[in-house]
């Protein structure tokens, strides 16, 4: 992947959505674009359908919690284009005060379970998701464990010894 090829995605993205893209970088060869969360569905549709880009694989969807910074959360999408053999990372900024973001299930079906896991672990609500409930923890679990302010050793057993 030459340098020319690597920045095609970022160039086209900043041309098409100039006000949504907050920043881009290419740390260690990974194309990354930081976007605002409002137009995330349009951005994803553009990335999937544009003939130069064709990001048809949604590899990963996760959330990073930057405690102490505003916006606190970043929803990170890792995409891969099978025809062009390229990767890109999209980071959408989500503040703690408005912890919602559009769901991209209609763009890639793979996002279904990844978004459920992000909701389970961080509490980010994906609007438009057909079935947003906990996936890795039991239904009555209180709290969202991967947030930085959740203690590691807090116990929430469903069932325990009598004494």
């Amino acid at each position: 992947m030459g340098l020319m090829d690597a920045s095609v995605t970022l160039k086209k993205l900043t041309e098409k959505f100039p006000d949504a893209v907050v920043g881009t970088h290419n740390y260690r060869g990974d194309d990354t674009a930081i976007v605002k969360k409002e137009k995330i569905r349009d951005i994803c549709l553009f990335l999937r359908d544009d003939p130069d880009l064709l990001y048809n694989f949604m590899m990963d969807l996760t959330v990073v919690d930057y405690l102490g910074r505003d916006p606190r959360f970043e929803v990170v999408y890792h995409l891969y284009s099978l025809p062009h053999n390229r990767r890109v990372r999209i980071k959408a900024l989500v503040p703690e005060s408005d912890l919602t973001i559009d769901s991209v299930v209609s763009v890639w079906v793979a996002a279904d379970w990844f978004e459920r896991e992000a909701y389970d672990m961080y509490g980010v609500v994906f609007t438009g998701h057909p079935n947003l409930r906990r996936i890795l923890l039991y239904e009555g679990f209180e709290g969202h464990p991967l947030r930085k302010d959740y203690p590691l050793k807090k116990r929430q057993p469903l069932i325990g010894p009598v004494n």
Binding site: N56, F57, M58, M59, L82, W108, V109, A110
Partner: peptide, 9 residues
Amino acid sequence: EEAIAYGFT
């Protein structure tokens, strides 16, 4: 196509 949409690898 469906496999790719589901994220199969």
